[in-house]
Amino acid sequence: MRVDASRFISSGLIEAYVSGLATSNEVQELERGMTQYPEVAAAVNDCQLDMEQYVTLQSKTPPADLKHRIFHIIVNEEAARESGTLTTETDTEEFPETKVYVSSSWRWIAAAAILLLLGSLLLNYVFFGQINDYKGRYEALLSTQNTLASESNLYKTRVEQMEHSMDLVKDPSMKTVKMPGTKPFPSALATVYWNQQSKEVFVMVNNLPEPAADKQYQLWAIVDGKPVDMGVFEMGDHHELLQKMRSIDNAEMFAITLEKKGGSAVPTLDQMYVAGKAS
């Protein structure tokens, strides 16, 4: 198959022509191709036959009286034609053929103007398509860029938080208090980091179940056998990092209980998840 003919066949022009989508320029281009290459004409004809099959599948019988109405009109017309009374009703609306003569110089100018206009329209069309294409690609890149930037910010924050936690843990005065799970919650585990110099206390959740929406975990220090409130903490995204709690000078034990949101004044002992000795 010749290169030009196969270009027509793979361009989508035939499908556009058969479906009625082709612009008048495209119609002219394809019709030239059909007279030039028999294989293009055959491809158009095959596609048209299939489209006509699709159309025929959607057939519906018109109302019965319509045929009589049409025949009534044409029979009357024929009778009038034979008796010569028909005012030659040549129907030209479908195929207007008007001839206007103008001087040849104006014809050249008009032809040139039309060519320029067509050229400009074609360029408009081409550039408009390109601009739309670039706009789409630009927007896609922009949204990818935004996604990457926000992801990168997220990672940056996480790294900073982790570095901060590492710095705290690296401090030689930091004491680690491991709090294993109590009997009812054997798999629970949390750790208290207690700076012996600054007396600051941090908690790290190793394994605690996600609390219900109206509940929060609360850290307690046991001082002289009595519980001291060290504050509540959130799970959320932070559960892998150290969270700062209240500072305390002395404590024999630390424990975590599950309390109502905001914390309680005294611990709910049957909801004690973890506990560990400080010394």
Binding site: L13, E15, A16, S19, L21, D50, M51, G129, N132
Partner: peptide, 18 residues
């Protein structure tokens, strides 16, 4: 859909139809 892809979509639709 972008203007530039209308003809391609039509071609694919008609090929599928056929």
């Amino acid at each position: 859909i972008p203007l530039g892809t209308v003809k391609t979509r039509m071609r694919n639709a008609i090929i599928q139809l056929r």
